[in-house]
Each structure stands twice: as structure tokens, then as C-alpha cells.
Design a protein around this nucleic acid. Structure first.
Lengths: 213, 213
DNA sequence: AAAGCTTTGATAATTATTTGACAACTTATT
DNA sequence: AATAAGTTGTCAAATAATTATCAAAGCTTT
């Protein structure tokens, strides 16, 4: 409907707002001003107001923002008002960790299946799920209305698996493989490159040592 | 020494350059131009040259960049020429997954210890490591010259643990807890908020459904 | 119900980041 | 040895993101 383009910077901040507002709600806080929230989150009040205004503005002059309302509205923006059905490709350490990370389910992210190519793992239980063979990915996606695929396998197989699930109509991939996936327009990939993250930390650590000491 | 401030945007791109250059090196590619690299990485050649120039420029006019040299130089920038010693706080699913993710060791990130507060876990083997009780964190950090602490526990305990390790002189924290850590100046925190990442994916998925369909 | 206080939403100014253009230099070719 | 082709590093221009400012509007108090 309103196809206004929201900048990536703003989208990237939404989950953090959501987190803080959730905490405030749990603490029983009813209203908050951009000023108060800015002190809590260590950002400028101007940025907060600017961000929310991208979506039409959720506040009221002279009052501020109603915490619960704002929390719900941002939740809707983030697509948390509807359930998402996920499968995990790769039952290694990371795949297992994600499966058991029950936190996601509370937000409507439901893990429906887990797949691996290692015959020794197939049939094993991981949390509530049973590891299935890779051949069944396509049929499972169609049968269970999967809308998000989590890739948690080494980079060698990742690109091929991504192609397969994209061919099944998957439009969203959460990629933990240490490689970039080349997907067609209309498919979103959210990368979690753990090594990259660790290197960034290492960069800052090294630089600081050189300049301060 | 040269305390020129590098923009966060540039730093954030360094690991990706490093990854691509490593792949090129492994393929036996000797030299590459910013033009070729830009096509590979789907960024502008101008950005690549601009980025490298922040550090003095690694190329040669008329020739391009020597892949191996550039790879090594970026590695040095990222602090990968020296070993880092890490401990993991939290031997849950995520802590275990990280411990066994041997990839990091190849880059000089050495996991030296893992801690948990659950008595049932203490003494258990995880990969090469044995789970230790939380009380021993401080002494272990000092005895083993730990320079990076990985926080992989629920958010309730995360802030307190961060305070403890900061008091031990730790300057770098890799934080997987679903909360922001409030650390003093001079301490770097690199956050990996998995839920945030998943929500971003969900945002784009929802938005696309609304606008395209 | 009026007056003063608060706070948003919107606009403008500032700052940061990305892209484009080209001189200077290197390599390759004739 | 001279010329042509290729490529960086740098500067300038354009775009994007953040911050500051303030009028307009809603609350709160008397």
C-alpha cells in the first residue's frame, strides 16, 4: 500500500526499539517521551522521532508515546503479528543451538523441521524435531508452508541449497554460512557472518592497543 | 601511531574484503583490479579504492592489487596477525556451538576456557575444554592472558558478568545476550543479537508481501 | 476555560558516506 | 623508444543519514 522506501538504517534500529519497549512494558511503564527513551537507549531524541515518523508517527504532542501501543505497532512492522514457519538446513552445532533457542518461538518463529546430509544424524531427535534427509527439503517446504529457510551448513554446500529452496518459492533466507548467497530479485537474505563479527571486534581491539598504549 | 579515524562503514566492510581475497588467493589469482573485484563483490570500484585508501593504498597504478599482499595487509588491519585468547561464558547450546566452531582457530582466535553456573555442567567436556564454575572467571582471565570474552548466557546475568570481566581489565566483549551491555569508555562490545537479525528478515518479508502481492 | 508546560512532527542544517571523474603513473605493445 | 591501454589515488559532486530547531498541538493545572 504505502510503498514509501524506508532506509536500511531505520529498519536496522527497529528491533532494538522493540526490545527496549518490551522491557518497559514489562516494567509497567505506560508512557515515555522521546527524550526519556533517548537517554535509556543512548541515541538522540531527534533520531527516535525521525525514525518513528517514517511510519506516520505513533506519538502525541505534549504526551509522548504510549509504550504498549508503540510496542505493538513496531511488532506489526516487524511482521511479528503473524507466525513464520522455518526449517533449518544443517544439524551441526549451530543448527542444534538454533533449534533449541526457544526464544524465537515466543515471537512467532516456529521451527518446523531440520535437515542434514550426514546419514548418521538422520532420524535423531533435536529438541522436538527429527533430523530429515536433504532430499526431502522441497516436499517439506511445500507441505508445511515454510516461509523462512535457515542455512547452517558449511559454505561449500550453501549456495547450492539456497538455489534449491529459492526454486521452491522461498523468499527469505537466514544465512549463517560463511559465504554470500546469490539470489534473484525478490528474495531476501539476512546474513549472520560470525567470523566477520569477531574480526570487527579484533580490529577495534588491535587499533585501540596501537593508538592508546 | 597514525590515529586517523576510520569510519565504521569502512571497518564493517573489511572482513568481507578479507573473505573474498582469501578465496581468490586459494584459487591462485595473483592480481586483481578494483573493477574486477567490484563485479565479484557487487559494489562500486570507487568504493573499493576509497576504502583501501583509508589505510594508505595497497595498489599500484596500471597494475591493480596483488591479491596475496592485500589479503595479508587487511588481515593485519583486522588484528589477525596475532593470536587472541578467548573464554566463553555460558555452556548452553550457543556456547557449545561456538566452542566447536573450529573455523575461528584458523584465524588466531583460541578458545581457552568455558564457564557455566549450572553445577550439572561443571566438569563436563565440550570439545577440548572442560566447563568451569563462574567463580573462577577472574583468576582464569588473569592466568591465561585472556583478551576477548564471549558472553553466551541469557540476558538476566549478562550485565553482571560483563561488569566482572571489565573489572578484570577485559577490553573486548563478543556479546550474544539479548541485551545491551553498558561498559566504560575504552571497552569494545560487538553484539550479535540473533533475534534482531531474524526480525529484520521478517520485516522485509512482510513488507514485500504487502507491497508486491 | 484559560494559561503555561511539554512534546511531537516537520523542516532545515549539518555531517557522513558513496559515487563519479580525471590526472598521474605503470604496464604492455609496436 | 615511443605510444597506447589500463588502473590507481585523489579530489569533487552527489546522495544519504543524523542532528538541531521550532511552530503547532496536546496535556495539566488552576
Amino acid at each position: 500500500m504505502d510503498s514509501k522506501i524506508i532506509s536500511p538504517a531505520v529498519i536496522g534500529r527497529l528491533p532494538r526499539y522493540y526490545r527496549y519497549l518490551g522491557d518497559l512494558k514489562d516494567e509497567g511503564v505506560e508512557r515515555i517521551s522521546s527524550q526519556e527513551l533517548s537517554e535509556l537507549m543512548k541515541v538522540t531524541a531527534s533520531q527516535i522521532r525521525q525514525d518513528f515518523n517514517n511510519f506516520g508517527g505513533f506519538g502525541q504532542q505534549g504526551y509522548g508515546y504510549n509504550v504498549e501501543y508503540l510496542y505493538n505497532e513496531i511488532g506489526k512492522l516487524l511482521g511479528l503479528h503473524e507466525n513464520h514457519h522455518l526449517i533449518i538446513i544443517g544439524a551441526g552445532n549451530l543448527g542444534r543451538a538454533l533449534t533449541n533457542y526457544s526464544n524465537f518461538e515466543n515471537r512467532g518463529f516456529i521451527f518446523e523441521g531440520i535437515f542434514d546430509q550426514n546419514p548418521a544424524l538422520i532420524g535423531k531427535k533435536i529438541g522436538e524435531l527429527t533430523v530429515m534427509p536433504m532430499e526431502e527439503i522441497e516436499s517439506f517446504i511445500l507441505a508445511h508452508s515454510i516461509d523462512i529457510v535457515v542455512i547452517a551448513i558449511p559454505k561449500t554446500g550453501a549456495v547450492a541449497v539456497a538455489d534449491r529452496v529459492v526454486n521452491c518459492g522461498i523468499k527469505a533466507i537466514w544465512n549463517f554460512a560463511h559465504t554470500d548467497l546469490n539470489v534473484p530479485d525478490g528474495v531476501v537474505v539476512e546474513n549472520v557472518h560470525l567470523s566477520d563479527s569477531l574480526m570487527k571486534l579484533s580490529y577495534t581491539l588491535s587499533t585501540k592497543n596501537n593508538s592508546v598504549d
